[in-house]
Design a protein around this nucleic acid. Structure first.
Lengths: 347, 347
DNA sequence: AGTCTGTCCCGAAACGTTTTGGTTTTGGCT
DNA sequence: AGCCAAAACCAAAACGTTTCGGGACAGACT
């Protein structure tokens, strides 16, 4: 039994590579970042040493020295919502093409969780973050967590004027307006809407678009038809129940995100209403299995992947000191007409 | 124009906190890791300084010095598969309770992607990784990427004897066997199966269970009823099409993961078969909107979240030098009977 | 012969922490 | 007054990189 057991060295360092290759540390570094002068002979010796020693660079040390990690964080409110998966993949794909690495956070619509993620990413010294803030975010507290890390908002944007270097999403007002107009054009006059929390600028914009369409059609706006949910299935279900069991039942329901549309569909099925004959359902955000539902869902599609890619681009451009697209970037939505909406039954 | 512009200091360091609090660097560190002696007076001065300077610890430096990052990685093959989201959340929740941080990777069933993630996480010096290997993994290459980082496998396990400190999943053979028995008990004799790639031990186990059930029932095994897909919707669709348009059509299809079940459902709908009357469909993995489908899907449910939690526990126990559950840990599945299976029509 | 220009390589300092092994201060006890 | 232990603090050495400023050598040109 050795009392002074040699500490197990978990990782091989550049120094050991240097020794093995008969070179100095700085030469290894130069070879690694294939720059500067290093002869072909030396280079091959180094590569051999790296291979046999199974050297794996230490990004902690690297980032510390460089004051830069070549990585960005993406924090979304709900990974089980396919929209955000697509968004994350957009961020990831663009970042990879710019050789940045991403760190993913899933706040589950919970500010505490989001704060933890943001803090953790900040401590890890990511170079920037693209953020889809959680619903119940109380205020511009993110600033306190992130210091002056560059932030670009995607999909949602904070209500108060938060400091950020850009934001990208769709023209929510316009999208909701034209979606509502579609319902109106089918003949619906009693339309219920289930929006997200009013703390989100995005939800308010969509509601604004809805109201605007109603007003343009010279229809009286019934405020009791407006329900504010929480962007999850449960609240979609709850509010759809409310809408469907009231005295004057709407002939159509517009849900401003996909989770709530699913919840509403569940409510409709539970009550046993025929959709779309007795109740039309219009969702926001498309998802890959929307066609599998019966009826298949009519939705307004957002270019989720593209939103992610552009967010990443704006962020990385900023990080690298390039000027970029003017902010905010507003992308176009598309109404995907499927089977969940039809003209209302005549009474 | 200053030629010698002072470099913008992006982050405030412990040293500046020390100056502001009139203390030494080591005292700040002691206060931060609230240990050692530090007087109440000093402690409050330090806290004040931290607050006003908005100090955020640098985990790169910390990890470098400590040779430990208090973080683990989880890489899964498909984040748009809800099963893996639940698994990730299990890992996350357990890790958080042990005050570990997680890094998420989404390989999209692609070994290149997975390799990139594993490499990136290794360079970041995570303390361990829980891994759900991508399908087309060619071999035990992960070892070459990860060196001797502790790995625990979740859900899937590699075919060849890969080095790892544990694995956790369900008893796939048993699960598939009893699921198949269920179909048999309904009266089905011509059952098609769409499995994952044979390179995965998990897929092979499920197939084994299927075959075992068939054999036990003394039914002739028709190998042309066995199709190997790729765990995605597309291949589920493709192989279901094959099965449904052949001469002797099966009366039931068993899909060994949820994505392929969705693809099969799409195929059934496309062809216009009545499900379950003309064709029963049995899936693997439950997901939150399985009840919204028409028919709602009968599935064998895996405890995804629990798998994640246990995987994290085994990993973290190992990292911290505690002994842990014997490996592999096999959890129980549950057959969730809904509407997509019924007795076959008599011919 | 001397000077210059490349090429190839190296030593040492820095990045922001934690830890080790101190030193100083305090106050209680003879 | 003298001593001692405990309490409170600190300086310096790591951790694994990259970069800066040279140095040695070779060949080309005066």
């Amino acid at each position: 039994m050795k009392s002074k057991a040699k500490r197990v060295r978990r990782h091989v360092t550049i120094r050991e590579v240097a020794k093995a290759a008969g070179a100095s540390v700085s030469t290894i570094s130069a070879a690694l970042n294939n720059s500067d002068y290093v002869s072909a002979d030396m280079r091959s010796r180094i590569e051999a040493a790296i291979k046999t020693l199974k050297y794996c660079p230490n990004d902690l040390a690297r980032g510390l020295r460089l004051q830069k990690t070549h990585s960005i964080a993406i924090v979304v409110p709900d990974l089980s919502n396919n929209f955000y998966i697509e968004l994350v993949r957009g961020v990831k794909d663009y970042s990879a093409s710019a050789s940045y690495t991403i760190l993913i956070g899933d706040s589950r619509e919970n500010w505490e969780e989001e704060r933890n993620y943001l803090d953790s990413f900040h401590r890890r010294r990511v170079d920037g973050v693209v953020r889809v803030p959680a619903m119940n975010t109380t205020g511009g507290k993110a600033k306190a967590i992130l210091g002056n890390l560059p932030v670009v908002y995607a999909d949602r944007h904070p209500r108060e004027h938060d400091t950020h270097i850009g934001r990208v999403g769709v023209d929510n007002t316009q999208a909701a307006k034209s979606a509502t107009s579609y319902l109106l054009s089918l003949g619906h006059r009693d339309i219920g809407i289930i929006t997200g929390d009013a703390s989100s600028g995005t939800s308010r914009d969509r509601l604004r678009g809805f109201i605007s369409a109603i007003r343009s059609a010279k229809i009286r706006l019934d405020r009791s038809m407006i329900h504010a949910g929480h962007n999850d299935m449960e609240s979609g279900h709850f509010h759809a129940m409310q809408l469907l069991t009231r005295g004057q039942r709407p002939t159509a329901i517009f849900c401003t995100n996909n989770m709530m549309a699913l919840g509403a569909l569940a409510a409709i099925q539970e009550i046993g209403l025929a959709c779309p004959e007795e109740i039309s359902l219009l969702g926001f955000d498309d998802f890959y299995w929307a066609t599998l539902l019966r009826p298949s869902l009519t939705v307004v599609r957002q270019p989720a992947r593209e939103i992610g890619m552009i967010a990443a681009r704006i962020l990385i451009d900023h990080i690298e000191g390039r000027s970029s697209i003017p902010t905010p970037a507003l992308l176009k939505t598309q109404l995907i007409v499927r089977d969940s909406c039809c003209p209302p039954k005549k009474m």
